[in-house]
């Protein structure tokens, strides 16, 4: 079989493993959906009283979409690759004639399927569960696709590179801790307008802030652009920053990837 066919076969296998791991499904796939529902219910009265013309679900949707992107790509990759390296799965794969690219195609396939599925569920829940109006114009959908694809790709390669930082035993803490902090300062759980200026500066160094900003430009009315740091959506810069993270992540991934655990070969 050629590399593409083997990559598809690996994708099927990866999806089986992912769907059977309840913790992964819960913490990366269902978590943003659950939180969106929870926040929408808990904060519904506050938002109605504001009269801002935006429901809680609408307010939190872009952040949850952005968090979902990084959870299904970055978090899933960092944790699964670290454990596969530690338990010898990678070394075993390397001992077969499977072309290495097939392994990465399998990972990309897993992230593509799970993240698109998660986005679809998030949008369905927002639209039909909480009556959020989804974008009405084609260019907004196009922008959604672009930010989403760049975010997922960057998250995937960065996650694979990040997996080399730690052993499987501690990778959970090494991934989830920083991810949680990033989500708080990037406007996912707490409104971007409530984050202090200096923390916004810190958040701007990482991709999650830009994914969230891109998603706000997709789902929010244009009048909301005033809450952004530049008082505009900065669409061009958002795409550029995410593309830079994607390319940088790919280079990092290719140059640092190891099939063997530290201290063995």
């Amino acid at each position: 079989m050629n590399a593409i066919a083997l990559g598809l076969d690996r994708t099927a296998l990866e999806l089986k493993m992912y769907s059977r791991e309840k913790e992964a499904v819960f913490f990366s796939f269902l978590f943003p959906i659950l939180l969106l529902s929870l926040f929408s219910v808990i904060f519904s009265s506050q938002f109605d009283q504001n009269g801002a013309g935006m429901s809680a679900a609408h307010y939190f949707l872009p952040g949850m979409v952005a968090a979902g992107v990084l959870l299904t790509s970055f978090q899933t990759m960092a944790m699964s690759v670290a454990s596969e390296r530690d338990d010898g799965s990678l070394k075993r794969l390397r001992s077969t004639p499977m072309p290495p690219v097939a392994y990465f195609l399998g990972k990309v396939g897993l992230v593509a399927v799970s993240s698109v599925l998660q986005l679809a569920v998030l949008l369905l829940v927002a639209r039909f569960g909480f009556g959020v109006d989804l974008p009405a114009t084609a260019d907004r959908w196009l922008l959604l696709a672009a930010v989403f694809a760049l975010g997922v790709f960057a998250g995937t390669v960065l996650g694979i590179a990040y997996s080399s930082l730690s052993s499987a035993r501690s990778i959970g803490a090494v991934v989830i801790g920083p991810m949680l902090v990033l989500q708080f300062i990037s406007g996912v759980y707490i409104g971007w307008d409530s984050v202090p200026e200096w923390l916004r500066q810190v958040a701007s160094l990482f991709p999650l802030k830009w994914i969230a900003q891109g998603m706000r430009s997709v789902f929010y009315p244009d009048s909301m652009a005033s809450v952004e740091m530049a008082h505009s959506w900065e669409t061009g810069r958002t795409l550029l920053v995410l593309a830079a993270w994607a390319v940088g992540g790919l280079l990092l991934c290719v140059t640092t990837f190891k099939w063997f655990k530290r201290g063995t070969v």
């Binding site: 089986k16 493993m17 791991e21 338990d87 010898g88 799965s89 075993r92 001992s95 004639p97």
Partner: peptide, 17 residues
């Protein structure tokens, strides 16, 4: 690689399959 087989000393993982 197609002509050799390797059984490693420590092999783990694959638990979910």
């Amino acid at each position: 690689r197609d002509r050799i087989g390797i059984v490693l000393q420590t092999a783990g993982g694959l638990d979910l399959l």
